[in-house]
């Protein structure tokens, strides 16, 4: 074999090894392109569907935003008109407020004047009430005085009527006594001062003064006893003495014991009588 054949053998060996390496490499780097294509296609379809969904959502959102923008614009226009109307109303209200303030100032001034007048009237009313109260108290007092005077007047009138009645009875008694005296041949004009009435009483009290014994007896001027009369004093049936009347009162009298006729001590409870007279 010559040199050229050796070179071909070596070249054939080298290329055979290269072929085997390439085949092994191709087999080792095997890829399923169909499945890859299918997967990429599926992913593409999904992406397109998502794109369509997003596009429709975008359009819907866009239309919604457009409507909202339009509504907001209309609302803005309405608010502008409302603002203008409220501003006009505010001006009217301000003008009305100014007018009311002016009227309120006038009313306050009038009210103050009325209050002053009211205070004056209240003071006057209080004075009038005081006057009325005083007048009522005076009226009550005068009424009480009039009532008391009326009672006194009635009492006096009753006394007068009683006195007149008693006077009529006394006149009748006098007339009857005068007739009786004349029927018994007695002069009705005889002075009665010299006649001592016949009455009985008791010694109510005794007292010794300036050496003389004073005796108080239970009969007085209502019984006809007068100063200067004499009364006799008895205890049971025994004569005790004689008293000379010094002073008299309507229901009692005071006499001095006449020692010339005294026949025993005179004590409280002794009887006195006017049967005897010392002339």
């Amino acid at each position: 074999m010559n040199f050229l054949g050796k070179c071909f053998v070596v070249a054939l060996f080298v290329m055979s090894c290269a072929f085997m390496g390439a085949a092994i490499a191709a087999y080792g780097a095997h890829r399923d392109l169909k499945a890859e294509k299918q997967r990429i296609q599926t992913q593409l379809n999904q992406t397109q569907a998502q794109l369509q969904t997003k596009t429709s959502e975008f359009q819907r959102t866009n239309s919604s935003l457009t409507q909202e923008k339009q509504a907001a614009t209309e609302r803005l226009i309405q608010l502008e008109s409302e603002k203008a109307r409220l501003a006009e109303r505010n001006r009217d209200a301000q003008a009305e407020l100014d007018a009311l303030r002016t009227a309120s100032g006038a009313a306050i001034a009038g009210m103050e004047a009325t209050q002053i007048s009211n205070n004056a009237l209240a003071d006057e009313l209080n004075e009038l009430r005081d006057s009325i109260r005083e007048a009522l108290s005076d009226k009550d007092r005068y009424f009480a005085t009039a009532l008391e005077a009326t009672e006194k007047f009635q009492a006096i009138r009753n006394d007068i009527e009683s006195a007149l009645e008693q006077n009529r009875e006394l006149v009748a008694d006098t007339s009857r006594m005068t007739s009786l005296l004349r029927a018994n041949n007695l002069d009705p004009n005889t002075p009665a001062d010299a006649i001592t009435p016949k009455v009985d009483g008791v010694v109510s009290r005794t007292k010794r003064e300036n050496g003389a014994q004073l005796v108080e007896i239970s009969i007085g001027s209502d019984d006809g006893i007068r100063a200067g009369d004499t009364v006799d004093v008895f205890r049971n049936t025994k004569y005790r003495g004689r008293l000379e009347i010094l002073r008299t009162a309507p229901d009692r009298a005071v006499g001095r014991v006449d020692v010339r006729f005294q026949q025993g001590p005179i004590q409280e409870g002794d009887r006195v009588t006017t049967r005897l007279k010392l002339s």
Binding site: M1, K6, V9, L12, S16, M20, A23, A26
Partner: peptide, 30 residues
Amino acid sequence: MTVYTVLMILATVALAVGCIFLYLESASYQ
């Protein structure tokens, strides 16, 4: 047997192995 004979045998074996892998690769696309 010379070295060149061995090289020829190895070259044949390498070609056979390369053909087998190529077949397997082509079979996978069927």
